[in-house]
Write a protein that binds this DNA or RNA. Structure first.
Length: 405
DNA sequence: CGTCCACAGGAATGACGGGCGG
DNA sequence: CCGCCCGTCATTCCTGTGGACG
């Protein structure tokens, strides 16, 4: 006998499996790799011809790939590598590749761990010295007698945190190898990165460079409509929805990931509302929801002192728009006093502000006010209300915020 | 034209919790 | 179990700096 609870769940699950909006929303996710990559033919051809020698057992050149976020760097690279592996399989050539996102695995050790995994070498998460891990990796690689293509995505994160040591070792790795070969593909969206590299690394990693220009609104529209056909049921995309997503994303330096996110979330919102069509208003709502989620996630993962610093920025910019490091620091200290906890030093506070800046929740511009010193001019770069809501979820921040005198 | 402010940010160091090899 | 190594957060001490003020 069916209880009401069962019925309710049945209904919910039904709706989840038989969407009125989506056929397959997976194709709108950022990690989906489509079979068609419009407007990237040139880059595909170039990368393909660079890597092709691998099929004859020769070591392809190292490649440096540059382009802003959402310009298809990762998708193109993964796509080409997939095809290359398929071809290698057909021809019976031993080619391995490994994709590592260095933002997620942002230490030298973890990158080596990932690379090792790809060639079937299990290393402990921790406990080994980095040098030992590297030694074992090279040893295992040599035993595999393979052409190994290592893709390091968002390589700037690794370089900023750990320097170019690993890059240097990997690009020089071939000197230690006789039966195997390594090719490194470095992907970054920070062109200035190249300048900060050791000249030896720069010359070997930059054997070949491929640039991915941003998409314009028109190209984004192509990409979106192509994916929309796969993702949505026929006729559910309302007039102007795709062009709007494309236009909004084009404004943000032609970021295709952004455009796809907008479209997917708009669809999800329409579905939640039980609408028959995805409309323009859903796109605007999607934009807000994406922003709110991002802020909330960033704030939640902030350590307490980061939250308090951010709260200080929020309070000080509320009416006056901008503030400075000194002001934020002293406000932050009063918050700490209210909570009865130790405050960090100004040196540390300065780092926390840079971190908040990097995370994109504040905007900190360093200026000199002459006689009145050098400081950061700080503004909040996201919606104050969203930040406040996210911050107040933390009981300690709430306490410090409420008990003002 | 030099001074000097209010910090920026590099370098060295350490405390601490977690996790592994031996 | 110990000893070692790791990443993270923090401190201390420090040198560097653009430009308004005198």
């Amino acid at each position: 006998m069916p209880s009401r609870a069962t019925d309710i769940l049945e209904m919910i699950f039904d709706r989840a499996t038989s969407s009125t909006i989506f056929i397959n929303r997976e194709v709108l996710r950022p990690d989906y790799i489509p079979d068609e990559l419009p407007h990237r033919e040139e880059q595909i051809a170039k990368l393909g011809s660079i890597l092709a020698p691998a099929l004859q057992g020769a070591r392809p050149s190292n490649v440096f790939i540059y382009g802003l976020t959402g310009t298809g760097k990762t998708a193109v690279t993964k796509f080409v590598l997939k095809k290359l592996r398929e071809k290698a399989m057909q021809l019976g050539v031993n080619v391995n590749s490994c994709y590592v996102n260095v933002r997620q695995d942002d230490t030298t050790y973890r990158v080596i761990l990932r690379l090792s995994e790809c060639i079937g070498l299990r290393l402990p998460f921790t406990g080994l010295s980095t040098a030992e891990a590297y030694r074992r990796f090279i040893e295992a690689l040599e035993a595999r007698r393979t052409i190994f293509i290592a893709v390091l995505d968002e390589i700037d994160f690794l370089v900023r945190k750990q320097g170019d040591e690993l890059l240097y070792r990997l690009t020089r790795g071939n000197e230690e190898l006789a039966d195997s070969k390594i090719t490194v593909i470095g992907i970054t969206n920070d062109i200035r990165l190249v300048e900060s590299l050791d000249p030896r690394v720069r010359s070997s990693l930059g054997e070949v460079e491929i640039v991915f220009p941003p998409y314009n609104a028109e190209q984004l529209e192509d990409i979106l409509s192509q994916r929309a056909r796969l993702a949505f049921r026929p006729g559910v995309i309302g007039e102007g929805v795709v062009p709007l997503c494309a236009a909004l994303a084009a404004r943000e330096h032609g970021d295709a990931r952004r455009a796809l996110d907008l479209l997917r979330v708009a669809g999800e919102i329409a579905e939640r509302e039980g609408a028959k069509q995805v409309k323009i208003e859903h796109v605007y709502k999607a934009r807000m929801e994406i922003e709110r989620d991002r802020i909330s996630e960033v704030v939640q993962t902030l350590p307490l002192h980061g939250k308090l610093m951010l709260y200080a920025v929020l309070a000080l910019t509320r009416n006056r728009g901008s503030t400075t490091t000194g002001e934020v620091y002293s406000y932050y200290r009063t918050l700490c006093k209210r909570l009865g906890i130790e405050s960090v030093t100004q040196r540390r506070a300065s780092d926390i502000l840079s971190e908040l800046d990097m995370l994109g929740v504040i905007n900190a511009r360093i200026v000199s006010r002459g006689r009145y010193g050098k400081t950061r001019i700080i503004t909040l770069s996201v919606s104050p209300n969203a930040v406040e809501a996210a911050l107040l979820e933390d009981p300690q921040v709430r306490f410090a915020a409420v008990h003002r005198d």
